[in-house]
Design a protein around this nucleic acid. Structure first.
Lengths: 101, 101
DNA sequence: TGCATATATCGTTATATCGCGATATAAACA
DNA sequence: TGTTTATATCGCGATATAACGATATATGCA
């Protein structure tokens, strides 16, 4: 894991809203049960936005930060963007921290 | 672990110099072999300062940030301040992240 | 007491981050 | 084609962070 990415990941994690989002995405069936498209696709950006209570542009920026850090990924289906945790990356980060911190 | 402290810890970790300092303090005998007082006391602030190459005031602020986050602690002996990792707190943080992240 | 050393605090400047509303872009649909 | 919906991007003001030099504080020593 490159230092730049480690830096980006820890910076991304240093904001409570972004940690909340990651937490919600861990068990989407618990937090986004009302989503129409199957949660296996991920969670739609608008759902996350409404859950935070912040503005659309702000949440879009948080999601972009998480994505640049490699902590989530998204796929576009039609006009929707579905977000998922990148659990492999998160596990790698945890392993790295356990090892080197 | 309170959310405030979690936030402080992750913010503290989100700066590479502070991560460097924590890393050095993990094996002080490797990085501060030239310190006169026994390393069991901790590492003297001035040693850390010179190792970073940053100004004295900047490093003092970084050490204060780490200390507020509970990631290090210091003891004053005479005119010196010796810093140690707070490994208990760091382990608690890692456990918390493994659990909740 | 006076001076040197170690560290913290202050004041400043530069840069980054957060949050917002406004606007741009892209897809869906009438 | 025009309109709605979903998301990204832009530009801004407010606040936080980082770095520095200067100065304050505290200890040790002559």
């Amino acid at each position: 894991m490159s230092t730049v990415t480690l830096d980006e990941m820890l910076k991304a994690l240093s904001h409570p809203v972004r940690r909340d989002i990651l937490h919600w995405l861990k068990q989407p069936e618990l937090y986004f049960a009302d989503q129409e498209p199957p949660l296996s696709l991920g969670v739609c950006a608008g759902k996350i936005e409404r859950k935070t209570g912040l503005s659309q542009s702000t949440v879009s920026a948080h999601l972009a930060t998480l994505q640049r850090a490699g902590l989530v990924h998204s796929k576009k289906v039609g006009q929707w963007h579905f977000f998922c945790r990148n659990d492999a990356q998160i596990q790698q980060l945890l392993a790295h921290l356990s090892q080197d911190l």
